[in-house]
């Protein structure tokens, strides 16, 4: 089972490496969306500083969502998803491997770039560190919750827009605690509470999301 887990993970990472342009696109999308905000609201440093956590997080939500149709879409089209479902291993474990790969490719880069964007918005060292930590805890939630939406909309008409409709409302708690962690640090009240709630959410998502994703994939293949 472990071998299968590693195989799924390695295959997705290798595949993404061969098609790195696809993944880089959503990362650049993230950078561009964040950079547009100062142009829209003006370069007032105090305003930008208060907006920074929310702007970065909303952009992260959108960027994570943009990469979702790819997670199962190409597997569905080329028949590898059928082979995945028909292996004798528990589908939930294989799904977890796929979501881990998705997080590594779409979530981790966002967390790594976000501190630079935070500095652009005038955040200090402390809040920038918290922004990084919060994204590191929050983006796997985005991948897992998003995976449910991606699996439910497989092969469905207009699935791209539909994923947004299904997934964005479910992202609300992650957005609130993630952006809240940074805001709390700026306000000097400490981010420990927010970060532990994010971690708790991540645990719930790790336990529950693979079941929902696996069930949705089986339905999509029927």
């Amino acid at each position: 089972m472990w071998d299968a887990f590693v195989a799924v993970f390695a295959r997705d990472v290798l595949q993404a490496w061969r098609r790195r342009a696809d993944w880089l696109t959503s990362i650049f999308f993230f950078v561009i969306v964040v950079s547009l905000f100062p142009l829209g609201v003006g370069p007032e440093p105090a305003l930008l500083r208060t907006m920074a956590p929310g702007v970065v997080w909303v952009a992260a939500l959108l960027a994570a969502m943009l990469s979702l149709p790819r997670v199962f879409g190409s597997d569905f089209a080329d028949g590898t998803l059928e082979q995945l479902v028909l292996t004798p291993h528990p589908l939930t474990v294989l799904v977890l491997a796929k979501m881990l790969a998705h997080w590594l490719l779409s979530g981790v880069p966002l967390a790594l770039i976000a501190p630079v964007l935070g500095l652009q918005f005038g955040l200090e060292g402390g809040p920038v560190g918290v922004l990084f930590a919060a994204l590191l805890l929050g983006t796997p939630c985005l991948s897992l919750i998003g995976g449910v939406g991606a699996a439910l909309t497989l092969g469905v008409r207009g699935s791209g827009v539909l994923i947004a409709l299904l997934v964005l409302p479910l992202y609300v708690p992650v957005l609130i605690f993630g952006a809240g962690a940074v805001e709390a640090t700026v306000a000097g009240t400490g981010a420990a509470g927010h970060l532990s709630l994010l971690a708790a959410g991540l645990l719930i998502a790790i336990v529950l999301a693979p079941w929902a994703i696996a069930a949705a994939l089986r339905i999509a293949l029927e």
Binding site: L166, L208, A212, A215
Partner: peptide, 10 residues
Amino acid sequence: KAGAILALVG
């Protein structure tokens, strides 16, 4: 079935 999963997740 798909709706059911979504409703449960919701």
